[in-house]
């Protein structure tokens, strides 16, 4: 799977920009287009592009299978747990107002946590599916 120099250098140049773009899409989702789902796919795309050029084995070293498969359920847990503190405060599930003193701040934190859960699950699940497919290729 090792391809020529041009591809390898090109991918190495592009990856940091993909990461920054994913972070932008993730954190700027309140104001522009994007959010956890889109950022998660971009993060998964980074690993997949890396694996396409450097081989699945090299990709497994930066994003180990065990880590990816633990992150997928962890994202759902982060999202689900975001709603729990408001239950203890006597409010409704997923009411963000417990995360700060004024509504705007609290809301920002709430959305941040929820989106963190979404990006974790989406990215990890896509990478895990990719790994599961390339795994069959080897056997």
């Amino acid at each position: 799977m090792k391809s020529d120099v041009l591809l390898r250098i090109g991918v190495k140049l592009i990856l940091p920009y993909m990461l920054v773009f994913a972070a932008y899409v993730q954190l700027h989702g309140d104001y522009g287009p994007g959010g956890g789902f889109q950022a998660g796919v971009i993060v998964a795309g980074m690993v997949i592009v890396y694996a396409l050029v450097f081989g699945a084995k090299a990709a497994r070293q930066i994003a180990p299978v065990a880590l990816v498969e633990r992150l997928a359920p962890a994202g759902v847990l982060i999202f689900a747990a975001t709603g729990v503190p408001s239950l203890f405060a006597g409010k409704r599930y997923l009411d963000y107002s417990v995360f700060g003193h004024d509504a705007l701040h609290a809301h920002e934190w709430g959305v941040f946590l929820v989106e963190a859960g979404v990006i974790t699950t989406v990215a990890a699940t896509l990478i895990a599916i990719f790994y599961a497919l390339t795994d069959r290729e080897h056997s």
Binding site: A72, F79, A80, G83, L94, G117, A124, T125, L126
Partner: peptide, 15 residues
């Protein structure tokens, strides 16, 4: 937000 939680769960379940 309940829908989005469900969607995240669906992505995970599909995986």
């Amino acid at each position: 937000s309940f829908d989005t939680l469900g969607e995240t769960l669906v992505v995970f379940t599909a995986g």
